[in-house]
Design a binder for these strands. Structure first.
Lengths: 111, 111
DNA sequence: CGAGCATATATCAAACTCGACATATTCGCT
DNA sequence: AGCGAATATGTCGAGTTTGATATATGCTCG
């Protein structure tokens, strides 16, 4: 199910193969995915810091346990909107959300 | 159409009126809206700096002029995903997006 | 081992967002 | 004022995201 990306590209009419455009888009997508990962990670940390179970958090944000699991797994079908909304529900401020978005998820690549 | 918010609340089962919960939620929603406004504003600035029309930008991101207009108007039906993706398409880095999100939109309130 | 609880994965109908198009409205220019 | 380009607003079908539900896996403690 992680082909949502590819599908989106195709639907958007990008010819995967056109060098410049493709590279550009890759960068965007990569940035987007990294942002999601960072947000997901932050949600998990905050939830645990508050000693909440996924089910409890789900109730707080008007959702279900299964979705919280997907949120924390940064499942491709989870939107940034939901990630951010969840983080805000956990008491994060706008500034803190910004910091999370700027933060590097892993830290391995050099090139 | 700006009742999407209200609808979401209702669907989520929030009784608008419950003091604590209501205030909490308001803060979240306010933060979300402010983030959207900041992002929308940044999109417009960047587009203009590049001397692009909405139609041209639309083409670049595989969308239509009307949607770009909605993006810049921070229309409630525009998701954060789209705002961020558009900003990235305009050459913004992840760090820059973060800065935009942290930035205050207006600057009037004191309390 | 077995029970109880937390988390992960799958499915589905309903709600939502998207791009496209048609149609205003506003802006810049002569 | 009159024209044309740019931008705003409304609607719609198609495709995506969501919350609920069911089920599976994993974990701890007796």
């Amino acid at each position: 199910m992680k082909k949502a990306k590819q599908k989106r590209l195709e639907r958007a009419g990008w010819k995967v193969g056109g060098a410049t455009d493709f590279l550009e888009l890759s960068k965007e997508e990569a940035a987007l995915v990294e942002m999601k990962l960072a947000l997901a990670d932050s949600v998990r940390r905050r939830r645990r810091a508050r000693k909440l179970t996924q089910a409890q958090l789900a109730k707080r944000i008007g959702s279900s346990q299964s979705r919280v699991a997907k949120i924390e797994a940064a499942d491709p079908e989870v939107s940034i909107d939901l990630l951010v909304r969840t983080l805000l529900s956990l008491g994060a401020s706008r500034t803190q959300v910004a910091k999370v978005i700027a933060k590097r998820t892993g830290s391995k690549e050099a090139a």
